[in-house]
């Protein structure tokens, strides 16, 4: 469920440039599919609100580039 929800949030963050299904099946980093830095920032804002977490932008942010990375990060941060 978490992966599906995160894929939806990825899709919303880039105004549908990537569909939720594409985000789930992606084999290249999401940034190559159209998750720009602006969309990443929207995604971060949504993650922080929806899961009550805080993203440390001073650290490694590679997790933003895949749904699996996001799911692992959210699970660990919650």
């Amino acid at each position: 469920m978490l992966r599906e929800r995160l894929a939806e949030l990825v899709s919303q963050s880039c105004d549908g440039e990537i569909s939720a299904a594409e985000a789930l099946e992606a084999t290249v980093p999401l940034s190559y599919l159209g998750l720009t830095s602006l969309a990443q920032m929207r995604l971060i804002d949504t993650l922080e609100r929806e899961y009550g977490v805080e993203v440390d932008l001073g650290g490694d942010i590679a997790f933003l580039d895949s749904v699996d990375g996001l799911a692992a990060w959210v699970s660990a941060a919650r």
Partner: peptide, 10 residues
């Protein structure tokens, strides 16, 4: 630049 842009945005 990529992580630096996100820090700039925040």
């Amino acid at each position: 630049a990529r992580p630096a842009v996100l820090r700039a945005y925040r």
